[in-house]
Design a protein around this nucleic acid. Structure first.
Lengths: 191, 191, 191, 191
DNA sequence: GATGAATGAGCGTTCATTCAT
DNA sequence: CATGAATGAACGCTCATTCAT
């Protein structure tokens, strides 16, 4: 087993356990057991539990970002770009409920606030397709002239809320519903 | 100090500590210390930590519901009713940031899912102005014909997201912005 | 309610609870509740929990001693006197299982050893019919010449063991069996 | 220190403390301290305090049973077999007073009743030399025709009571006294 | 490097006892 | 006298982290 394999195996075990039982319900020893490694081994790859939790999130964010990029064309209309991102995002979470639940849990925790602050302050310029999308939309007068953060919440916040209800089983999203949900979000931000 | 004072003092200490440090970061002993009572005293008012956490939420929910009811007139137009609720809600959270942060934390936890499930299943028919608002809107063909849960997320989910960003200091909401945010949410659900 | 009534009510509540749940399973507050008195009131009658427990035992011992005395005639034959005590004792416990279970529990605890030591050392000369019975028997050469303690165990230890099995439901003692058990104990000590 | 050493060291510390102070007077932390291990270490070997207590007893029972078996010949006379068991048992407890006091304490507790019930119900057929001894004796008309439980109490109950008084220092058993005590017990059960 | 036994601070909770009313 | 709210030391148990092997 290569080094990265071992890291991967730990990450997967941690992800599953945390999603099932919450941060507190996933002791390091249990993660180790589930990953078939020694407890101490985890500490070779992650300085401590906090780092493990944060790294898990970062891995996931990167993966989602790459997914969003597939087939994304910055030259197309604002609406088309928004629709692409919204639909892909919603589908991704429908297909990867575990990731969604982890992100939700992470976001809503001391860690989450720090991460969010970094994003909004734009310290991390790497992930910017969404930011550019809204900025373009505002300057083209296609999107309402509201603070970026609000636009973000109106556009994608609801998408996530809808995804959550699907994952918790309160509703069942089919293709038609996905499309209409994304359209409704668009209504919220379009002029 | 009267009986209710003591309960109140515990509630306030718990609320503050949990908001600052999360459920895990607020041991009963620390809550007691902050409330200037013995540890055991908390257990006279709340059977255990779970009950304390849940009661805190219920108190708050009740308070918010009563606030929403003030000046709410079920005879008015859908839009007016929606605007009333959205605005009051947003203003309430702006004025009571601690309550907002507690609710967010609570909602996103094992407790929260259970409560949400109850609400959606409608087992608790007491709090229903929002539900009726959407049902009326759909039947009057003023609101999009989407599942209630989705409408709820589109309409109020974003409101909450906006409140959060204000409370975390990412944006500063003034009256104008509050109005425009509520309008944008209306755009998301209206036909 | 007179003073002694209150004490009595506490004693009965304590007895029942301790027999049902053990010393640890009978908090002072629960005893108070069961006795319909305030927690603090118990401390008017008993200095602390240890004293309550010990006094409970002493009350009981006194009561049993008085029962044994009824119909006891020190002028009769050793065998008759032994039979009287054995039979009355066994019957008493069959009729008062709660007392038996309390005594057992008490005897088998730090308190018990101290009490037993006192008895054997003869510091308490008050209760002596059993002691005299054996001493008379030995000097009359009707009973084996063994240390008093051993005679006591042979004679009455088994009686108690039999009572216990009846109370726990392992056997059911009828009059015939009581008689035969007492006879067997006599066989153990007689010459 | 090998694994079994550590378990052994915990067992010994627990045994001593419980015998000295009772179950309640022997907190896990104190046991750990006495054993020179961390509190948590105990939980590697015993799931919880109840298991520790019960395992301690089972270890002991097994050890005693094996001791009784040494030199026991089921082909010999009832009296010889009884004498063997009685004498070995009494000697064992005289030599291992701590074990005796632990067993007494254990037997007289919620745990003990459960264990006794199992034994009497015969669900555990493993340890049965004593049972067979009495059954054989009754069918050979050498032993009184009484319920097995009563015979057991008459025969061995007193033996234990005698052992207790020796251990508590009320009497001092020498070889002659051991022999005579066993003989007296035999008198109680023989026809 | 990898392991997992060992650690002990820290948690939620209980309950004997006190004392203001 | 009687009360029961208040107390906080003490309990059983967990788990992030370390370190000898």
């Amino acid at each position: 087993m290569s080094i990265s394999d071992k890291r991967e195996v730990i990450v997967r075990a941690a992800l599953k356990l945390i999603v099932e039982n919450g941060f507190h319900g996933a002791p390091m020893s249990m993660i180790a057991q589930r990953a078939n490694v020694g407890t101490g081994t985890i500490y070779r790859y992650f300085d401590n539990k906090d780092v493990l939790i944060t790294d898990l999130y970062k891995d996931m964010e990167e993966k989602i970002y790459l997914t969003l990029l597939e087939g994304y064309d910055p030259e197309r209309l604002i609406w088309e770009r928004f629709s692409h991102i919204g639909t892909v995002l919603l589908r991704f979470f429908i297909d990867n409920p575990i990731n969604f639940r982890y992100i939700e849990q992470f976001y809503n925790s001391p860690y989450g606030v720090a991460i969010r602050r970094e994003h909004i302050m734009g310290k991390k310029g790497e992930h910017k397709i969404d930011r550019m999308l809204f900025e373009d939309g505002v300057s083209q007068q296609v999107i309402k002239d509201l603070p970026l953060t609000i636009l973000f919440n109106l556009g994608f916040g609801s998408i996530l809320a809808v995804a959550r209800d699907h994952i918790l089983g309160f509703i069942t999203l089919d293709d038609a519903l996905v499309t209409r949900a994304v359209e409704a979000c668009w209504d919220a931000i379009k002029r």
